[in-house]
Amino acid sequence: MTTPPGDEMAIASNDDVVRVRQVVRAAAAAAGLSLVDQTKIVTAASELARNTFIYGGGGSVRVERAVSERGRAGVRIVFTDEGPGIPDVDQALTEGWTSGSGLGLGLSGARRLSDEFTLETQVGKGTTVTVTKWTR
């Protein structure tokens, strides 16, 4: 239940991470999310965009308007990379666990900040993370 197909953009640099925040902010405001909810989903998107760039070796993001089954408006963001994938998803979602130099808050924090969170990953193939935030 998604309208209309959103813009797809590449995540290939630190500047792109900043652009993702701006695009998500605009989409969240247009969907009618409160200021706090806009801030939460932009922050989640910033974490996930950085993950896509650093751990996924770059990738792309699609930002789209969404409508829930109960008719609520929202914004959905899909991050895709063709990087190494995540061997142990439970571990990756554990707060404080990091495979790199981060704080280990990226995935777990993004999950807490969104209303819906799905993660599909295949080792050697890549990772797709989808987050959605609905208006209240």
């Binding site: 706090v36 939460k40 707060e95 808050l105 777990s108 924090g109 807490r112 900040l113």
Partner: peptide
């Protein structure tokens, strides 16, 4: 710090 930023930071776990 803006209120929305403070709320978000706490929920993020920081």
């Amino acid at each position: 710090m803006r209120p929305a930023v403070a709320i978000t930071l706490v929920e993020l776990g920081l």
